[in-house]
Structures are given as structure tokens and as C-alpha cells.
Design a protein around this nucleic acid. Structure first.
Lengths: 138, 138
DNA sequence: TATAATAATGATAATTATTATCATTATACA
DNA sequence: TGTATAATGATAATAATTATCATTATTATA
């Protein structure tokens, strides 16, 4: 939480009540992947007349600061989750049937895959993306 | 190409001129990731009054048959590329600066990462998703 | 402290990608 | 040939996200 505060400070972002409400929602829902609308309804419990625009703006800002991680699994909408400190790895298992998203950790692709199968998953496919800069842009 | 035809036959999909145009576009653009709109404009060169709805319907069908791979990198829109035969692995490098998407092949996460760095990339982040069925649904 | 400059907000309009609808056309098949 | 069905194109509808803008809150400064 201190890390978050200092990141906000460093970037001259005011910690308004609305932003505090959104951060609290994310902190209370570690591990789950919330859509902007879901965040809105949860945040409304803490700050009833918060607007959807503020939610979008705040989520975007927090994602840019690596406080949140933004990803898309299905359904044409982005989902946000609290990023683990300094971890830039996001390994997920998405169930094609129920849509449940679980976290995975580990290093080797096949090692991971067989570990998951040992845990009872049936792996059909996987997707790996690297983000960075290409030689021309670096 | 025969593989594609037999897949379509097997599922009772007619190979109309419009679908042929779309498939040709995808075959001519192997390795690049086209949005539905980009496919539309390319397909119009071959079949001028093809409609956007047909493009969306066809891309969706072809993706369901694993003829195309559907993915999203940024910009809130899906992109499609020809799937390599029976390969269910999609490794991409997305340049955060120019948006260029390149293919990667290999097995080990860190091995890949260091190989990419050797090739001149600067890797900031990566994302790995497994698709399958969880123990409860399997 | 008073005031000016700036940041943040909420309401809502605008945009954009995608999906649904529906009348028309093309195709397969009896 | 006639009939059932599939596919299409135009376009309306939907849904997520972004932009606009007047208002409010906060900070900096005189």
C-alpha cells in the first residue's frame, strides 16, 4: 500500500476519495479479474455517486503505473487485477467451459503444462506474449 | 489448402466466392495480424461488394475451425492470422512502440527471452495464457 | 487568508467494434 | 422445376470505451 501511495505521489496523482474507493475495491479482490463495470458497482458501496468515467480513468492510470494489470480473456471487455509487486508475469488458466480464471506460477512451458495436467486440468492451448521493444525501436 | 477445404466440407460450409476471397486474403498475409476491417478492404479488391457482416461471420467460423487464430494485442479490436497446421501455440512479440507483431518459436520461457534479447529486442513483460478445462469441467 | 491556476469529477454525448435482424439471393437436393 | 436451406448485404442494435464540458475540489502563491 505504501508502494502504491509513493507511486501516486511520484506521478503527482491526487489520492481522491473516489480513487481510494477504487483502490480499496482492487485490494479487497486480489486474484479476481474485475471489469470496469464491476469495479463501478463495488466502488459505489464506498462512494455512492462515483461515475463510470472516473472508474475508467482511474483504472487506466493505475494500469499505466503498473499498480493494476489490464488484460482480456473473452467477452470483448478488459479486466483489471492488482499487480503483484514488481512482478511482470501474468500466467492464467482460463476454463473454456466456466470461464474461471486461475493464477499459475512457474518457469518452463512444458513443466507448467504437465503440472497443470497433474492438477487435473486439461490443457488444449496456450498463448504467450512478450511485451517490449523491437531492435528498431529500442 | 486441402486441409482447409476438407475442414470446411466436413462442417458443411459452402466455399462461396466471398469466403474464398477472405481465405485468399489470409493466405496472402501469412504472419500478419489483420483486423476485420483490414480484411474487408483487402477482400473488396477481390469481391467488391462484400459486406462487413460477412467478413465478421466468416472470420468467426474460420477461427472456430482453427483455420484462423483470433487474438487481441491492443486497441480494443480482434486480429486474425492464418493458423499454422495443427499448431496451437501462438508466441508473439509485440513492440510497445510501433505495434509490430512478430512470431516466435521455442520452448522455454527464459531461453526464449534471452534469445530475443540476443536478437536485439528489449523484453519488458510477457503474458502466458493456457486454454483448457479445469478439473471441475473436464 | 484570499485568490488564481490546475486537477479531478460526473453527466452524458460520441465513437468504435461487434452482433443481431431481416429481406433477398444463391445453392443443394428431392 | 420446385422447395428447403444456407449465405449474403444493408443496416439497426448493442456494448464497451473515450471525449467533451461545465462544475467542484485541491494546490500553489501572492
Amino acid at each position: 500500500m505504501d508502494v502504491i501511495h509513493s507511486k501516486l505521489d511520484r506521478n503527482n496523482y491526487r489520492l481522491t476519495d473516489q480513487r481510494k474507493a477504487i483502490l480499496d475495491v482492487m485490494l479487497e479482490n486480489q486474484g479476481s479479474h474485475l471489469s470496469a463495470e464491476e469495479v463501478l458497482w463495488e466502488a459505489k458501496k464506498k462512494f455512492p455517486n462515483i461515475g463510470i468515467a472516473t472508474v475508467y480513468r482511474t483504472l487506466e492510470k493505475l494500469a499505466n503505473l503498473d499498480i493494476l494489470h489490464k488484460s482480456m480473456f473473452e467477452g470483448n471487455k478488459f479486466r483489471y487485477e492488482l499487480a503483484e509487486d514488481d512482478k511482470h508475469h501474468h500466467h492464467h488458466v482460463v476454463c473454456l467451459n466456466c470461464g474461471q480464471i486461475s493464477e499459475v506460477s512457474g518457469d518452463l512451458l512444458h513443466e507448467l503444462e504437465s503440472k497443470l495436467e497433474q492438477q487435473g486440468y486439461k490443457i488444449i492451448d496456450h498463448e504467450l506474449k512478450f511485451y517490449g521493444y523491437c531492435p528498431a525501436c529500442k
